[in-house]
Design a protein around this nucleic acid. Structure first.
Lengths: 344, 344
DNA sequence: CTGTTAGCGCTTTCAG
DNA sequence: CTGAAAGCGCTAACAG
């Protein structure tokens, strides 16, 4: 497929002027006669000239591209974040290149390396759950490549970060469950390698404590993953015991959906016998039966804010680096899978 | 943020050799003494040298980036396609840049233009529903920029295309509904500006015809959009009449979910009184109550195949262009929202 | 086996 | 107001 993109030199040759003049005319340089400017712009549009950004990049040492690394683009959560990032960066003339780690450290590493080679202007990353070693991120910092971490924390690395306050979300959820009359609240947790799962667990524990309810280890089940099937399996362990919980706080909506399914299969009523609360507020959460009470996260905002912070860092000239850590607050959305609060 | 990425010239200076020798050493050129090669590679790794792909791009007139334009990254359907595209292109050293049209022609136009400026090696596009004028795509073809259209058709433009056979999916669904004992099958359709909606409608009509069932206009409702709310509204119009359908074939799972909700609200049993079938097989379709019978689409495969075809076109040298049109086949997934077939 | 040169497309001094 | 020249980082003839 041979194609010849027309260049500034083509225009210059055609008009019998120098490439530099064409360049100036096109970039609205003041010192250009209006005639030549007109001639140039006219020819340019006629020939459908498009500036070669590659050449500019090389010259300016800037690519106007941002690398985004996420575990899974298929999830509503991360794709919404991307939308936020894009809505911030596109109007500024930046393009996004995407990498999916699939929760794998090796893939993440590879992505980071190609992003570095491509010379992206900055990187936004939600680290994979499999990422224990963060040397690849430290390298970026040393290379002074602007980096912001979002959603999941990497304690060892000191850069700009944007999170949702998972702790608060979990606390709100469990505290509400207790106030709605539940006293035996179980938790279906996520892998403790992920900071978000840990913080949600902590919110759960503290809400129990605040309400004077002792923690019962048998009411805490760690799921293998975040699928409904994982939720089903986990809740079945809970249901197989004599002493049943009267509420389940799940680490994610997906897990909660699986849990609801198993509870209904076991012939129990939601929320009559067991209340269920999830986390995320996924797209269809209000359309399940019963509709799912859950914790909404400001995902789009998280994308926007991460992008804004990164952009600032990219433009920054001064050297003394003070990392910024921003936290956004989630909100409890009460629906049909849990009991209403006493109107008192 | 000042950073100095080390270059091939830096290495050359350090080792008192010429840049070209360094270049050759790094690219495993045969005519290089093993000593210099060793010295170069060692220094390169020590200094953490990363080739500047921008420079290479300029030289080779190739960016190793692919532009992908989709209406909405947030949908499970399109994000799965992206995964397919990525899984094909990443191993080949290509990066993806993403554009979301939000179903708007203007946005699509803007995206296409920036992609052209960035000099992507090829473009994959699922046209926006708002795109009636396709001059921007024609321009790409004229500029000899490899282009493949997927998911939604643009009849006027003659390039490689990859689709799912929507007609077949719809036909299978409706034919099955009739064989399961339904005779009054309604259709909740999508905007007829979108080729997929039209083809699904046609499959519905032909399945009725094949089974000798007359088409009843009052059983066809076009939804305003693809949300559950749209499905709810549409099905309510159906339920407000005297003569009720005994089955509903919805243009998408999302619409079907809204429809199911409204039907249950109206106190009717699914599938006892009304069967419901959707289209897409979204992530949670088996977790609704009842679980949703639907038409599964080979989304990941569609992404992969589109990517493969684009890659071929990019590598192609010869000029005589024969567009390829590929069709993938969907499959009916029978679940709880419809009646089982008589086992005969 | 290695150095020199030119050039990818563009901007930007420095001279007219 | 315009042109010539240099250079961003790299590769690829062309000479040695």
């Amino acid at each position: 497929m041979t194609k010849h993109n027309i260049t500034i030199t083509d225009l210059a040759r055609e008009l019998h002027i120098s490439p530099s003049t064409v360049s100036r005319a096109l970039s609205n340089h003041p010192a250009i006669s209006s005639e030549t400017r007109k001639a140039v712009t006219e020819l340019a549009t006629r020939l459908n000239y498009k500036p070669n950004l590659q050449a500019l990049n090389l010259l300016k040492k800037k690519t106007n591209t941002i690398g985004v690394v996420i575990p899974d683009i298929t999830s509503y959560f991360y794709s919404s974040i991307i939308t936020g990032i894009q809505d911030f960066f596109n109007p500024l003339g930046y393009n996004l290149i995407l990498g999916q780690s699939n929760e794998s450290y090796e893939e993440e590493l590879k992505i980071i390396h190609t992003f570095a080679s491509v010379r992206v202007d900055g990187i936004l990353i939600a680290p994979a759950s499999g990422t224990m070693n963060v040397n690849h991120l430290k390298e970026l910092v040393e290379a002074r490549l602007p980096l912001v971490i979002f959603d999941r924390d990497c304690e060892e690395i000191n850069v700009d970060k944007v999170f949702v306050n998972e702790y608060s979300g979990a606390f709100q959820a469990v505290d509400y469950l207790i106030r709605s009359g539940c006293s035996k609240v179980a938790h279906l947790g996520g892998a403790t390698t992920i900071s978000t799962s840990r913080h949600r667990m902590q919110g759960y524990l503290d809400a129990l404590k605040k309400n004077g309810i002792p923690v019962r280890d048998e009411f805490i089940v760690i799921c293998d993953g975040f699928t409904p099937e994982d939720g089903t399996k986990a809740v079945q362990r809970l249901l197989s015991r004599d002493d049943l919980p009267d509420a389940v706080f799940a680490v994610s909506d997906s897990v909660a959906i699986g849990a609801m399914h198993a509870i209904k299969e076991a012939g129990m009523d939601i929320p009559g016998q067991i209340s269920v609360v999830g986390f995320d507020d996924i797209l269809y959460s209000s359309w399940f039966k019963p509709s799912l009470t859950t914790v909404w996260q400001p995902v789009y905002e998280m994308g926007m804010l991460s992008a804004r912070i990164l952009a600032k860092r990219i433009d920054e000239t001064d050297e003394n680096f003070k990392p910024r850590i921003e936290t956004l607050f989630p909100e409890l959305v009460i629906r049909g899978s849990s009991r209403p609060l006493d109107p008192n």
